[in-house]
């Protein structure tokens, strides 16, 4: 056993972090929120170049093979830098199509996987089943090139995004995409493939939530070291210290669950990771908001880009309640 990232994995994470740190991701996220997808697609292409969207595509379809651990590293970085767009959904769509191919239905995979892997195609998807992990909206369906809808044992490619529904996070644009258009596949293998795709979506969302929590903690630590009230930096107050210490504990005990879930792809371990990362991210948001005070409650401070993402990510692709139930089901 060696429960440590290897040098290559650490380098991959570092590279992504550097790439994103230099990319003015807050501006990208704000543009995306306004419906301007251009900077987001430029960034998407650079992430694809770094290999992010090949991590869930088999080599035969021009991917890197299925690399769930690297995926968690990438999505922690995406969360840490508030990258907008249907990244989780693109990964889940890749898994869905790759799984269908494994089960013998290779046409949609051939058509789409190379495009998704190289970043020229963005995908989203929506599903009503399985009920406990239902994803009722297709994220960023207006920006996506491929809109998948799973309805029972049918897989549709929707021609239109459908009605928009506002999210608390304006960088997350939700759509009630309907199950009509082109029928890509039908039969029990669709449900089997979808289940695998959901697992990866949950894993990637957990990683993203963890990255969001980490960014919130880092920014808040920076703020309380500088902000002065009553003549001292507010970071000297014990109430502030203890609240941030609790956030660090939550984040640091969530990450090992995430990595273990990636190693095993066991549904119970993925559910554990989602509960821990989602709740830690949201706890970080609550603390960040409280310790920033009024300025944290404004949309103009970049902090809001992460604050508004934390609760949607806690609930997306498996609410804490649904995931706890999965843990108890064993």
């Amino acid at each position: 056993m060696r429960f440590l990232l290897d040098a290559e994995q650490r380098e991959f994470a570092r590279t992504l972090d550097a790439l994103l740190g230099a990319a003015d991701t807050p501006a990208v996220a704000r543009a995306w929120s306004r419906g301007d997808h251009t900077p987001g697609r430029v960034l998407w292409a650079r992430l694809a170049e770094a290999g992010v969207f090949a991590l869930a595509v088999p080599e035969e379809f021009d991917g890197a093979g299925l690399l769930p651990l690297e995926l968690t590293l990438a999505f922690e970085a995406l969360g840490r830098h508030a990258v907008p767009g249907p990244a989780v959904e693109t990964i889940a769509s890749s898994l869905l199509l790759a799984s269908l191919a494994e089960l013998g239905d290779v046409v949609p995979a051939k058509a789409w996987l190379p495009r998704l892997a190289c970043g020229t195609g963005l995908a989203t998807l929506r599903a009503d089943a399985p009920a406990a992990l239902r994803a009722p909206y297709a994220l960023d369906a207006d920006a996506a090139d491929l809109r998948l809808v799973v309805a029972g044992d049918q897989l549709w490619r929707a021609a239109e995004a459908g009605a928009a529904v506002a999210s608390h996070d304006p960088a997350r644009r939700l759509f009630a995409t309907a199950a009509r258009g082109e029928l890509l596949a039908a039969g029990p293998h669709v449900a089997a493939a979808a289940e695998r795709a959901w697992a990866w979506a949950t894993l990637a969302t957990a990683a993203q939530a963890l990255g969001v929590g980490r960014a919130l903690l880092e920014r808040t630590v920076g703020y309380v070291r500088e902000r002065r009230q009553f003549g001292v930096a507010i970071g000297t107050f014990q109430a502030v210290k203890h609240r941030l210490a609790d956030v660090l504990i939550a984040l640091e005990f969530a990450r090992p669950l995430l990595h273990a879930a990636a190693l095993s792809l066991d549904p119970v371990e993925i559910a554990m990771a989602k509960v821990a990362c989602g709740e830690a991210g949201w706890a970080a948001a609550r603390a960040a908001l409280q310790l920033h005070g009024a300025v944290g409650y404004t949309e103009e401070l970049d902090l809001s880009l992460w604050l508004r993402k934390a609760r949607p990510l806690r609930d997306a692709w498996g609410t804490p309640a649904a995931c706890r139930a999965r843990v108890l089901a064993g």
Binding site: P136, Y137, V165, S167, H168, P312, D315, A316, T319, A322
Partner: peptide, 8 residues
Amino acid sequence: GPDAERAD
């Protein structure tokens, strides 16, 4: 549940 995300 996941509908908590809706701003409306």
